[in-house]
């Protein structure tokens, strides 16, 4: 593939320890980059602050789901045993609240669990099987014992030369400019000619 058909998508700096990656991340944050990330084999304590990230908003999703579960469970039981087919058992009123508690609790937990897992995946935009970091052959070690900082080329501050020099100043053990092969622009917009 000719060289002019590839374009830089990512600068990827590799670090050997969590401490090195953390200190480097602080400098990337202070330099003002926005579209960048740290990739680690396990969550590194203090990395959220080093990247300048706030709290996760997942709690709100879970809260809304949990409230939906509780109210949904209440409506279900009230409708089925209290309104649609009033059922009197053991002399208790058809819409007795106390006997609902176990099921309301379980419905709350069930929907909170869905909220936590699917909310987390949605916030993370997962599943996403294609990402430029995977173009790097070294990146396989990220799930083993190496730590990476990636700065994406569409960051407003990204400049192939300057960003590479900046990352080099953070003393990574390896620096890689990840390029993506671009499909050649179609010469003829009229479609395919066999």
């Amino acid at each position: 593939m000719p060289k002019n058909n590839s374009r830089t998508v990512l600068a990827l700096a590799e670090f050997q320890t969590s401490g090195d990656a953390l200190h480097a991340a602080e400098k990337v944050r202070d330099a003002g980059y926005k579209r960048w990330d740290v990739h680690t084999p396990f969550p590194v304590h203090g990395m959220d602050d080093a990247m300048g990230l706030g709290q996760s908003h997942l709690g709100w999703i879970v809260f809304i789901m949990a409230a939906t579960g509780c109210l949904g469970g209440f409506s279900m039981i009230m409708f089925m045993n209290g309104v649609n087919y009033p059922l009197i058992v053991g002399g208790k009123p058809a819409g007795a609240f106390l006997s609902m508690i176990p099921i309301l609790f379980e419905c709350t937990i069930l929907l909170a669990g869905f909220g936590a897992v699917f909310g987390m995946l949605a916030l993370n935009k997962l599943p996403q099987h294609h990402h430029p970091v995977f173009y790097s052959n070294r990146f396989e070690k990220c799930s083993d014992d190496h730590f990476y900082i990636s700065i994406e080329a569409d960051d407003p501050m990204f400049d192939p030369e300057k960003t590479a020099d900046f990352l080099k100043s953070l003393t990574p053990s390896h620096l890689e400019i990840v390029e993506e092969t671009v499909a050649p622009a179609p010469a003829d917009k009229g479609g395919h000619h066999g």
């Binding site: 084999p41 959220d48 990230l53 949990a66 987390m120 996403q128 990220c142």
Partner: peptide, 25 residues
Amino acid sequence: ALGWRGSNRHWRNYERAYLILAAIS
């Protein structure tokens, strides 16, 4: 693996999800 790439932006939500799951379990 759903395309997991060890991203710290992901770990942040992931750890929160794990904590919430532990708290509701």
